[in-house]
């Protein structure tokens, strides 16, 4: 088996646990990567090589999967706020919500704040169009969001640790 170029023991331990939970074959790739993304943030090259070695697939296949799925890409901030930008939410005022979010975090969509606390992403329909405009804060949903709610959200996230 290949040795990872960087010996990140916490990563190796988490990977072992994820492989034990999801099985050590190719179909486990997405849940394993999602688990690593959740615990360690951005999936590094070293992590991709380690996963590839454990599953016996070429590293480029892992890279191909990571870049394909929006929940596996990126991840440098502790919290991700995914604001829906699709039709029902746009009609209900989503542009005002993300403008306010960008102002509060002080970074454009897709870029993490300098303290690494929050990244705002503009995403497509999250299946809560009955509560437009809607957004996801990490794993939670926030409904019928006003710009003021968005501002309060950013303030509270700056003080919170990465969700586990």
């Amino acid at each position: 088996m290949l040795t990872p170029p960087v010996a990140d023991l916490a990563l190796v331990a988490d990977l072992d646990a994820l492989l034990a939970e999801h099985g050590a074959d190719r179909s486990a790739l997405l849940p394993v990567l999602a688990g690593l993304r959740r615990r360690h943030g951005e999936i590094s090259d070293a992590a991709m090589q380690l996963v590839a070695a454990r599953l016996g697939i070429p590293p480029v296949e892992v890279l191909g999967v990571v870049t394909f799925y929006s929940f596996l890409r990126g991840g440098s901030a502790r919290h991700v706020v995914r604001v829906c930008r699709t039709l029902a939410c746009e009609l209900a005022g989503a542009p005002d919500v993300w403008a306010r979010l960008e102002r509060e975090v002080g970074a454009p969509a897709g870029e993490a704040t300098s303290d690494g606390a929050v990244v705002v992403e503009r995403v497509h329909c999250i299946g809560r169009c009955d509560h437009a405009p809607a957004l996801l804060v990490d794993d939670r949903a926030l409904d019928d969001v006003t710009p003021a709610d968005a501002a309060a959200l950013v303030a509270s996230l700056r003080g919170e640790a990465r969700p586990t």
Binding site: T86, L87, A88, H124, G127, D130
Partner: peptide, 11 residues
């Protein structure tokens, strides 16, 4: 997977 914009009944 319910990703079609405007669909939320499966949720």
């Amino acid at each position: 997977d319910e990703g079609e914009p405007g669909t939320f009944k499966d949720r």
